[in-house]
Structure formats: structure tokens, C-alpha cells
């Protein structure tokens, strides 16, 4: 227990480091730190009844944002040291090491193309000028069966979409991750010459999914800039879908008429589909999705098993989009 605190407190200290960042993000961080320290103070009354804490948090969150979950956060350490980012490594602990030098700034550009009135190369700096950064505390459910609760900072994807003005032909968006063998050692071939996945990593959303207010482009986590291993400098967050939909380090957004083929679907079509909505009733061919292992910290007992909720608990805001669809077929 003392170790948990040690690790958390060091990470909290480093929040104080000042670095150049957008004012929006800055303000958001202030708010977040305030809120977070408040709850930390609450927690330091040590193990004050969990229920009390939870209800307190719920109240706060209800004032703040309708989507924010009141469940206890996964520690910053696990959020930044348990990453599926195959561009670095298939190991979940290695991306944190290998991404040490991957610190892209606001000069990062995204190519926006296809069925839009205003295509072009947009820098993150520009994008942050016309979008409003805020904090969202979301559940993240990995298709492998583990989950976390993560405080992201970012903007609603819908704001960016409106700005670039999609045409009536734009039915889907295809996203792409940076392809660079020098940045991403995982994109090189392995010892036996096998490629882990066909690169670059691609993902897609239907336009209504992309416009849903829950859909976020995250630029930060835990009140800090997004670390390399979490998909710096900008990544998608689609909290009602399995984590692999939430594509990292985005360099391209193409607005298209036809449904894109996402990387995992291309790699194993029997196991991964386009929609990938969290669904406890539809098993992965190799394992059940009925429950999940919630990771709260990196101690041996920091994982709790719990039932998985339909649409990862976000059904109220997203279920309508899939009315009449056979979700076992469109997995």
C-alpha cells in the first residue's frame, strides 16, 4: 500500500513541472489538479468509507460532465506503463521504455483529405485553436479483457469534423497512425521475418459515431501531455468500443464513402470486426467478453474481476446508433 502511494505521489509532484502548452490545456489541468487533489485529500483520511468517496465524486462529476465516471481512477503508473502500442512492441510494458524519445509537439500535422470542403494539412497547434479542450474520465475496455478508468484531456472529434466541412458523400472516416521504422521499432520485421501487423495501423468510424459527443481526440492524460506510449500527440478515444479502435499518433484522417477496413479486421477478420462495440454477450472466438479485469494499480492485487457492461456502460448515449443491427454479426 505504501508503495502505491509512493508511486502516485511522485507522479503528482511531476505535474508541477511547467512546460509550454496551450492555454486551454493549461486551464483544464488546473481544474483537474484541483479536483484530483481534493479527492486525494479525501483519500488520505485513509480508507474513509469507499461509498462516501464515491458519492462525493459522483456529485462533482455530475456538476462537471455528464459522461465522467465516478469509479476510482487507474493509477497514472498503470495508465502509462501498460500499453498496447504494437508500433513500439507487442509487450505491454515496453512501449513506456521505447517511447522515451518520442515526444512530438504541437507542430505535428494531420492530413485531412477525401470528402471534405476544407482538406489540407492541419497542425495540432491550429486544431487546438478551434477546438475546446476539456477533461473526460472514461472507462477503457481492451478486447483482451482488461480495463482501466482514465482521465483524458482532449476535444470532441465533432468540433474538428465540423470545421473541415465533410461533403454529403462522407459516410466514414479512416484514420491512420504514423508509419516510421525509425520511430517505431515494432514496425520492423521480427526475428523470423514476420510482420506483427500490416502497417500503417488503420481504424475507421461511421460518421455518426465520429460525431457522437463521447468521441474524443485526446491530447493529454492525467493532466499532462499525452506520453509517447499513450499515442502522442493526439489519439482517438471511443469509450464504448474495444480499445483497439482508439487509434494512436494520428497522421491522417480521410473522409470516405465506403466502410474502411481497419487493421485488426484485415489481420484476423474472424476475430475482429469493424464495429468492435463492447458487448458482453458476444464472445471473442478465443475468449469470453462477459467479464473484465479492472486494473487499478500495479500491485499484485491491483486487479479486480467485474462484469462487462453493454457498450462499456455508455449505452444510454450510443445504443440508438445500432438499432436494428445484429450485433453478433457486426461484431
Amino acid at each position: 500500500m505504501s508503495q502505491v502511494f509512493a508511486k502516485n505521489s511522485t507522479s503528482k509532484l511531476s505535474v508541477k513541472e511547467s512546460f509550454v502548452t496551450d492555454e486551454n490545456v493549461f486551464w483544464n489541468r488546473r481544474q483537474f489538479i484541483q479536483r484530483f487533489t481534493q479527492s486525494a485529500i479525501g483519500a488520505s483520511g485513509l480508507l474513509a468509507s469507499g461509498a462516501l468517496l464515491a458519492s462525493e465524486a459522483t456529485q462533482k462529476n455530475e456538476n462537471a460532465k455528464p459522461f465522467n465516471t465516478a469509479e476510482s481512477l487507474s493509477s497514472e503508473y498503470v495508465v502509462t506503463h501498460h500499453n498496447n502500442f504494437y508500433e513500439f512492441s507487442t509487450s505491454k510494458s515496453k512501449p513506456a521504455e521505447l517511447a522515451k524519445d518520442f515526444k512530438p509537439g504541437n507542430d505535428w500535422t494531420v492530413e485531412i483529405s477525401g470528402e471534405v470542403a476544407k482538406p489540407g494539412k492541419y497542425s495540432l497547434e491550429d486544431i487546438l485553436k478551434f477546438t475546446a479542450t476539456e477533461e473526460r474520465i472514461y472507462r477503457l475496455r481492451c478486447v483482451e479483457g482488461w480495463s482501466m478508468v482514465i482521465p483524458w484531456t482532449g476535444f470532441q472529434l465533432s468540433q474538428l469534423i465540423k470545421r473541415v466541412a465533410p461533403t454529403s458523400k462522407a459516410k466514414y472516416i479512416e484514420f491512420e497512425t504514423l508509419e516510421s521504422r525509425s520511430t517505431f521499432p515494432g514496425q520492423r520485421r521480427g526475428s523470423l521475418g514476420f510482420q506483427v501487423l500490416p502497417w500503417p495501423y488503420r481504424e475507421g468510424l461511421r460518421m455518426d459515431e465520429a460525431m457522437n459527443p463521447l468521441t474524443l481526440i485526446a491530447t493529454g492524460v492525467y493532466g499532462k501531455r499525452l506520453p509517447g506510449q499513450n499515442g502522442a500527440p493526439m489519439r482517438l478515444i471511443v469509450p464504448w468500443k474495444y480499445g483497439f479502435k482508439s487509434i494512436k499518433s494520428i497522421v491522417s484522417m480521410r473522409f470516405v464513402e465506403k466502410q474502411p477496413v481497419n487493421t485488426w479486421q484485415k489481420s484476423a477478420p474472424r476475430e475482429y470486426g469493424f464495429y468492435a462495440n463492447v458487448n458482453p454477450q458476444v464472445s471473442h472466438p478465443r475468449w469470453s467478453q462477459a467479464s473484465e479485469r479492472r486494473i487499478t494499480d500495479d500491485s499484485f492485487f491491483g486487479v479486480k474481476k467485474m462484469p462487462t457492461q453493454m457498450f462499456n456502460g455508455y449505452g444510454q448515449w450510443v445504443a440508438d446508433m445500432y438499432k436494428g443491427m445484429d450485433l453478433a454479426r457486426h461484431f
Partner: peptide
Amino acid sequence: AVNNRLLGGDPQESV
């Protein structure tokens, strides 16, 4: 490794 937290974010899975 378990005692010193050297097994990453999900030590149960690593073990």
C-alpha cells in the same frame, strides 16, 4: 519481481 513491482501494469497476467 512481484514484491518490487517489476512486472508492469498487470502483474497477475505477467505471472
